[in-house]
Computed example of a mutant assay.
Amino acid sequence: MEELIRAFKAFSPEVVIHAAAANVDQCELDHDLAYLVNALGSRNVAAAAAMVGAKLVFISTDYVFNGRAGRPYTEFDAPDPINIYGKSKLAGERYAAELCRRYFIVRTSWLYGRHGKNFVKTMLDLAGKRDEIAVVNVQVGSPTYAGDLARFIAGLIETELYGIYHASNGGECSWFAFAREIFRLAGLNHVRVRPISSAELNRTAPRPAYSVLDNYCIRLQGLPDLRCWQEALRDFLKGEVLS
Rank of each mutant, 00 (worst) to 15 (best):
P79G: 04
W229N: 05
I196K: 07
E93A: 04
D125A: 11
A10L: 13
L90F: 03
V106S: 03
R130Q: 15
N169G: 04
N137T: 10
T61L: 02
P143H: 12
R6F: 01
Q139R: 14
E3I: 02
E132Y: 14
F183I: 08
N44Q: 12
L237Q: 02
V212R: 06
A97M: 15
G113F: 02
S42Q: 01
P206S: 06
R130S: 14
A78P: 11
T61Y: 01
G92C: 00
F178C: 07
D32R: 12
R68G: 09
V57E: 00
A199E: 11
A96M: 04
D214A: 09
A7N: 05
L90R: 01
W175Q: 10
L223A: 04
I5C: 12
T61W: 05
E93G: 00
V193S: 08
E240Q: 11
F183Y: 12
K121P: 05
V191F: 00
V106I: 03
I153E: 09
D131I: 15
Y95D: 05
R6N: 06
S88K: 00
A97D: 08
V45Y: 01
P143T: 14
A146R: 10
K89E: 10
L4V: 14
I5Y: 13
V24Q: 11
F178G: 01
I59L: 15
R6I: 06
D225W: 06
K129C: 03
P206W: 04
D77Y: 05
A10N: 10
A199Q: 07
A49M: 11
N23D: 14
V120E: 07
C27T: 10
V37F: 03
P206Y: 01
L36S: 01
E3T: 11
S243P: 10
E181W: 02
A150Y: 14
G222A: 03
V135G: 07
L33G: 08
T108W: 04
T108N: 04
R107Y: 02
F236V: 06
